[in-house]
Simulated scan of single mutants.
Amino acid sequence: MSATATRAGLARGWIELRQLYSNGPDLIGQFLTPAIALGVLFLLRNRMYGDPGLSVAELALPGLLGSIIAFNGLYALLNVLVLDREDGTLLRAKAVPKGMVGYFVGKIVATAGSVIVQVAIVLGVGMVIIGGSSLSGPGAWATFTWVVALGLLAALPVGAILGSVLDTRSAFLLTMPLMGLIAISGIFYPITALPGWLQALGQVFPMYWIGLGMRSALLPADAVTIEIDQSWRHLETASVLGVWAIAGLLVAPIVLRRMARHESGATMAARRDKAMQRAF
């Protein structure tokens, strides 16, 4: 990988990140859904759950952070790749020597940066209006850090793969299955309250494990009683997220190279014609 192209990509990612947080519509898109979710949790702040003595909102806040990492890390990169393929941005990057390297580095930096900023803001606001969450001690901070890092490594390559093969319509339709995964991943209610087969299905995907890792870092130790096997299962969390990350990092470059190789003016025109036919 060219060092010059990588530096250009890092600079591009930083510029895109600054533009994102200086644009009103982009800010609304970034924070509207988390704000609604925080509003729902605020209304649930007095509804207690089981033995830990915590409210449903306090238990769900770490899961909300996990969903931001998994959903936004995946879908933001997916969406930008689909749009840039269709409007010619990717084709223009391909025309520049090492332009694809700089393009992908920039998108990864901008996406990961935006997710980290969202997590920090939602965590801060959530701790103020809901409470019950704290990062007490170096161990909690270390857990929080590696869960965020591994979560992004698990989500971003999947977003890149899907963004390389889907069109706008397919990307939109994917939203519903992703929302379904959020529903069964213990975000707004402990996964132990779900039927066994849904618990098993939820544990296949990274979202549950990111949420579990967030809960282990942010909640008091006695909150573990509501988890499966009454354990934070750090080893399993690192293993599942690690498998997703390694698989994604192995597959994503192959799919991205194949997509870039086939990208041309003719393919872009064909996609545009197909979109116009659907519109009329």
Rank of each mutant, 00 (worst) to 15 (best):
L78S: 00
L83S: 05
A275M: 15
F104Q: 02
G137I: 11
L256D: 09
Q277R: 15
D273M: 11
P195F: 05
A37C: 13
L249I: 05
L241P: 04
L166R: 00
T267A: 13
S136G: 08
L20T: 15
V224D: 02
A70L: 03
R215N: 03
I130M: 15
L178A: 11
W141Y: 12
M100T: 06
A37K: 00
P34A: 13
T6Q: 06
G13I: 01
W14K: 14
I15N: 04
T143F: 00
V40W: 05
W244C: 01
T4P: 02
M179R: 13
A245V: 10
L153R: 01
G124V: 11
A217F: 04
V82H: 00
L44E: 06
S2A: 10
L194E: 07
L20P: 01
L81S: 12
S22M: 12
G66Q: 03
F31L: 05
G126W: 01
L10K: 08
R271N: 14
G39E: 07
L32C: 08
V224K: 10
P206D: 06
G265A: 11
N46V: 02
V82M: 02
L235Y: 07
V224Y: 01
G186I: 08
L178H: 03
G196N: 07
M207R: 08
A270Y: 11
L17E: 08
P195E: 10
M207K: 10
R261H: 15
K274L: 09
F104S: 01
L256C: 13
L178V: 08
E86R: 14
L20H: 11
L90H: 06
I184A: 04
T33N: 04
T225R: 09
L212S: 04
L83Q: 09
G113N: 06
L178P: 04
V255I: 15
I108Y: 00
G159C: 07
E263V: 09
A160Y: 00
R45I: 01
G24F: 15
L198V: 07
G99V: 02
Y189V: 12
R272F: 12
P220L: 05
L38R: 12
A260G: 05
